[in-house]
Each structure stands twice: as structure tokens, then as C-alpha cells.
Amino acid sequence: MTTDTLSLTFSALADPTRRAILARLAQGAATVKELSAPFAMSGPAVSKHLRVLERAGLIARGREAQWRPCRLEAAPLEEVAEWAEHYRRFWDASYERLDDYVRQLQKENDDDDRP
């Protein structure tokens, strides 16, 4: 995944309203009107959030009907989870290498100290 895709996903997820919208869509597709209901927010305000989510590829909007139901796209979220996995793998692998490296450094030191 490129950093750009991930940062787009990331900034889309940084807003609590947008996360709540995604949580709602995880239960099934919904229209803008349905998505607006739980929030004290106008349709246009919700639409603005939906545009951010759509640009980040987190949701898709149907073209087939006037009310354009929204549905969740799982792939970018999986990529975020992958980032966490990546962080873990990065440090695990690096620390393993550090174990070998400090062993080698200390061995070289011991050898140097020998008369």
C-alpha cells in the first residue's frame, strides 16, 4: 500500500462522525436520510462526510437509484489493520536482528580485549 492511500484512509477515519457512519454501514447499506437520522446533522453535512469517505475508498455509492444507497468497502480498513500488523512485524524482525547484532558487537569487544 502506498503512503498516500493510507494517509487518505487515515484522515477519513480521524473524525468520530465518519467512524460512526462506517459502523452503521457495517450493518448494511443505507441512504443519506437513514444515515442522517442518528446525528443532529443536516443531510448536506452528512453528504459532506460521505464524500470524504467515498474519496478515501471506504464507501461506495450506488448509481442505480435516486437515493444512492451507501455501502461499506472493507479493503481500505483491512489495509489500516495491516499497518498495525506491519508495525508489529517491523519491530519483531528488527529486534531479532538487534539480538544478533549486539551479540556480534560484544564478541568483537571481547576479542579486542584479549592480549
Binding site: F10, R19, L22, A26, L77, A84
Partner: peptide, 25 residues
Amino acid sequence: EARDAALGTGMKDGMDMSFARLDAY
């Protein structure tokens, strides 16, 4: 919010998707 977004956990409760790898994390 930023931390949870990085971990993907902000979504976890309301979402019917597998975060098994994240749970392991």
C-alpha cells in the same frame, strides 16, 4: 481517535468484520 485510527480499533465494536489479526496485535 488518531491512535485508534492507526490501530483500526475505533471501528471494532460496531463492525461485522474480522479484526482477528488486530486482536492478535
